[in-house]
Design a binder for these strands. Structure first.
Lengths: 243, 243
DNA sequence: CCGACTCAACTGGTATGATCAGTTGACCTC
DNA sequence: GAGGTCAACTGATCATACCAGTTGAGTCGG
């Protein structure tokens, strides 16, 4: 009902504005940024705030800063990491970037079977019980929004159960992107959310320690969503050239 | 022969020191950091540098900063993304974190077939030729270091050929981690680097557009390295608890 | 003319101190 | 005891000065 009012510091706005400018292509690889003192004045912020924003761009490998030299824009396609996906998935004007969505769906499809497999080899009985309970809740959910929330909780717990640091961190990265487009996916992915059978299959496989079966059920499950998503894209008019 | 002398700004050192303290577990989820003015004096840096470092920690979701309230340490296992892997993989004392290595190997194994599959559907003839040339160079390489460099170049080009934003960004993230442990892996992964046959198989599959074959060859290839790595871990004394 | 050195005018990096703006909790009032 | 007040915290922003690398134009010696 009442959503929290989002607040953004100046440094955050600097980061977002410059970041989107680079991702949009208005600043190309090799371009040199104005001096900090100049840029700060142009943006109407203090140099300190500007530097805090620049530090984040630097951490994201979107720019390269050299003491004494000019700050240069890097090729984000070759250097930017998964943490850029949230900024990439929704453009400044609010448009959805299909390439980014496709990307997150591909990663999900590839990783899900591995996560299930690792969970089958590593999950504790308590974690398996917890997953079982989440399946029951998912089955009982009446609305698509509720199913989405439950399904997400299931995967969160499954990834935790995998005990694999790589899967955990990658999942966290993907989630940040996923949350930005959450409402857009509620309807499209609903067929997947309704496929509780596969999730039950995963849980059964965890109990018996059958890694192959867990992976197979996971693959079957996430491919439902991926198919739905590509069907949607194919039914829409061709994409504008936003990446 | 002569390696560049690494330089680190104060803000970078603040980021690394606090980040490692959190990842090491000396600062736990829910702990509150001292006030910026206090912390800056304790670390012997000015407040601006401290804030630049904190901004990066905040971007990495390692801490939560609230205007007017205390800065709080978050649960990095639930919030940190792939960009934290480089800091995790080598501890402050120089020790290798096996969980992080295992993680990067798992991700690699899961993603490689998808990358090859996408490349088979998307690579241009020029890109395929380029990959072919890289195979030839890899075959001709005499030393393990050289093979490692060539093999890395092959995957860089293959990921680019996939035309998939998700794979590209995930690969960039993994590469940052990979580079930090590069010399450690040279010998262990050499059996994989010598398996040029599978890479040739991928290239052939790209030419014929055979996605399944490309994925199969890729899987076969990376599993060599993963098996070598788990064999190594199993032959070593049990791991200390440096997760 | 050319190579090498000098140096001034850039660039980012660090420091200090003041002020604005939210949050918190003790305390006072009714 | 519920609710309002306010002082003392917290981070956010600002202005200014100075330190420390980089760059390139200009100068000097050959």
């Amino acid at each position: 009902m009442f959503a929290a009012i989002p607040r953004e510091s100046l440094a955050d706005r600097v980061y977002r504005q410059l970041g989107e400018t680079i991702l949009r292509g208005d600043l190309r690889s090799g371009d040199k940024l104005p001096a900090e003192r100049v840029l700060a004045e142009k943006l109407g912020v203090n140099r300190g705030a500007l530097r805090e924003g620049l530090k984040r761009l630097q951490q994201a490998d979107l720019v390269q800063v050299r003491h004494g030299g000019a700050t240069e824009v890097r090729n984000w396609r070759e250097h930017a990491g998964l943490e850029m996906l949230p900024l990439l998935v929704v453009s400044g004007s609010g448009e959805i970037n299909r390439g980014a969505i496709r990307g997150i769906m591909s990663l999900r499809t590839q990783l899900a079977p591995g996560v299930a497999r690792a969970a089958a080899l590593h999950a504790s009985p308590e974690q398996t019980d917890s997953l079982d309970a989440l399946c029951v809740q998912l089955r009982a959910a009446m609305h698509a929004e509720e199913r989405q929330t439950r399904a997400h909780a299931f995967w969160t717990e499954l990834v935790r159960s995998s005990g694999n640091l790589g899967y955990q961190l990658a999942f966290n990265s993907l989630r940040r992107t996923y949350e930005r487009v959450w409402p857009v996916l509620t309807r499209t992915l609903d067929p997947e959310f309704r496929d509780v059978e596969s999730l039950d299959g995963i849980v059964r496989a965890l109990r018996t320690g059958d890694a192959d079966s867990a992976a197979a059920h996971a693959r079957q499950h996430v491919e439902i969503g991926e198919r739905a998503m590509s069907a949607l894209f194919n039914s829409l008019p061709p994409d504008g050239d936003n990446t």
